[in-house]
């Protein structure tokens, strides 16, 4: 059985106040893929992510993680296999020290303290944050918080890594470090972002959401070259795919 598969069929979700956030979303993400989910504010990205490990239950349709449809019975299993990195690391880092925070997941999985601490060390080393382990989360910089938030998820050895706006609030250097790190991470990745240059660097495939529907799903470069599609979904071509104003002036 492969846990590395995420599939969404005819997914619909309406909030209690009547707002329809998802109006029939379909896609299938397979092992090792890096997929971006992009779209305007309110397009349904966050709502979609919240379905992937069962915070929200679809009004209709289905989410499949691995070979099974997500149900209340296999929820714990799905939450282990789909690791979610939140937009605001302050929401994710709730324990008094970095070490305890990273150990939270492994201990909940029933690991012994020794094994949990082993995982803490491995995960923190992976994101280059081992030196922060005794620090309280509120004394970390945004970049450090982000790295630790990713480590908290890695410590649970997820099969699929889901990141919600991972580059928000990072300075250019921290952003670049994050991109380099994510590029080296070989498991399945799903990244929701407005940072289309980051998407261009990391994801071979892009799903464009608009008004709760999939407007496009294809190779990232192709999607970002489609000017009409980008305008329709309130997006802009990534800076790197735009002509450089300085160079083009010089040549003209």
């Amino acid at each position: 059985m492969s846990h590395h598969l995420v599939e969404v069929n005819e997914l619909r979700y309406t909030y209690p106040d009547g707002t329809q956030a998802l109006a029939g979303v379909d896609f299938r993400i397979t092992h090792g893929e890096a997929v971006a989910i992009v779209g305007a504010n309110g397009a349904g990205k966050s709502t979609l992510l919240q379905h992937l490990n069962g915070y929200l239950w679809p009004s209709s349709g289905q989410v499949r993680v691995g070979d099974y449809a997500l149900t209340k019975q296999n929820l714990q299993d799905a939450r282990r296999s789909v690791g979610m990195v939140f937009q605001d690391p302050d929401d994710q880092l709730f324990m008094p020290t970095v070490r305890e925070d990273v150990a939270f997941g492994p201990l909940n999985l029933g690991l012994s303290e020794e094994d949990a601490l082993q995982r803490v060390t491995t995960a923190l080393r992976q994101v280059g944050a081992l030196h922060l382990q005794d620090r309280p989360p509120h004394r970390l910089s945004s970049g450090e918080k982000r790295a630790v938030a990713i480590a908290t998820v890695l410590a649970m050895s997820p099969d699929v890594l889901v990141l919600d706006e991972p580059s928000t609030g990072l300075d250019p250097k921290s952003r670049r470090q994050l991109i380099d790190w994510l590029a080296g991470y070989r498991h399945t990745k799903i990244i929701a972002s407005h940072d289309l240059d980051l998407v261009l660097d990391l994801c071979q495939r892009t799903i464009v959401l608009s008004a709760g529907k999939v407007l496009a799903d294809g190779p990232t470069r192709e999607v970002f070259q489609d000017q009409k599609l980008l305008e329709q979904s309130r997006l802009e071509r990534p800076l790197r795919l735009q002509g450089c104003p300085v160079c083009s002036l010089a040549s003209s």
Binding site: R79, F86, E100, F104, E113
Partner: peptide, 19 residues
């Protein structure tokens, strides 16, 4: 949101504290 983050890391009602 914090509760969601806890749930996503296997929280089932008890918070484990290190020895």
């Amino acid at each position: 949101r914090v509760h969601k983050a806890m749930l996503s890391r296997g929280f089932v009602g008890t918070v484990p504290l290190l020895q």
